[in-house]
């Protein structure tokens, strides 16, 4: 699995020697909690995580496949069109099929790793780590609500395309082959946000300051 950092993404990609003074001046904010905890978990939670391992592996190899297939297909088109002078007109459609699966499986995988592109002022303003944890918990909750609504509409859209028998204009393949990538994308997003909020909840409980636990 690709998992270079469990931190909220901070270090620039693929570079080990960078100088970034601002980071040195601030205390490290609490570790960013993602969907997959590093320590062992048992019980139901553990079983879900074991399932997740399989799910993530499928996504991982699917991403490798779709990425390569997309590149190979577009390259083939160049050869067909300009070397063999006979373009295969369905290639753009199939390319987009691989493309959307690459995008939306990627979206689910990004959620798994907690690597969504973030804004970020909170940790500069709020120094209390417990408050930071609480805010992040609430934001994940909001994300779950929003993503669930989107997942609902994504499913409805795929069903619409199935019901209407919509087909692609050249290959005449069912269009839901494309649009169902949205279901997996948003479904995966909701799934990983739920895993994340579970971990955040456990983290909140285990790190709560003494005074607050009584109240």
């Amino acid at each position: 699995m690709v998992r270079e950092s469990k931190q909220h993404p901070r270090s620039p990609v693929q570079s080990d020697s960078y100088i970034y003074t601002a980071e040195n001046e601030n205390p490290e904010p609490p570790e960013y909690i993602t969907a997959v905890p590093e320590h062992d978990v048992d019980g139901f939670h553990g079983k879900v995580l074991a399932f997740e391992q399989v799910f993530a592996k499928i996504i991982y190899w699917a991403l490798v496949f779709f990425g390569l297939a997309l590149a190979a297909l577009m390259f083939t088109q160049v050869l067909l069109r300009y070397v063999f002078l006979s373009p295969f007109v369905g290639i753009e459609e199939i390319g987009l099929l691989f493309g959307v699966w690459f995008y939306f499986l990627g979206m689910a995988y990004v959620t798994r790793n907690g690597e969504h592109i973030h804004g970020g002022i909170l940790t500069l303003v709020v120094k209390n780590p417990h408050t930071v944890r609480k805010v992040r918990f609430v934001l994940t909750l909001l994300s779950i609500i929003a993503a669930s609504i989107f997942a609902f509409y994504a499913i409805r859209y795929a069903i619409f395309e199935i019901e209407k028998g919509r087909v692609s204009s050249y290959m005449r393949w069912p269009k839901w082959w494309w649009s169902s990538s949205l279901i997996i994308g948003f479904g995966g997003m909701v799934f990983y946000f739920i895993l994340q909020i579970t971990n955040q909840f456990l983290d909140l409980k285990s790190t709560a300051p003494q005074g607050e636990e009584k109240s």
């Binding site: 069109r81 002078l85 006979s86 373009p87 007109v89 753009e92 459609e93 204009s169 050249y170 005449r172």
Partner: peptide, 26 residues
């Protein structure tokens, strides 16, 4: 023959310009 022509992405358009001798590209 040998002219690459843009057609809209509908099957009938691709077929028409292929039949008319062009190399159709949606």
């Amino acid at each position: 023959s040998g002219i690459k022509i843009r057609v809209p992405g509908v099957a009938i358009a691709v077929d028409r310009f292929t039949n008319l001798g062009f190399s159709a590209v949606p």
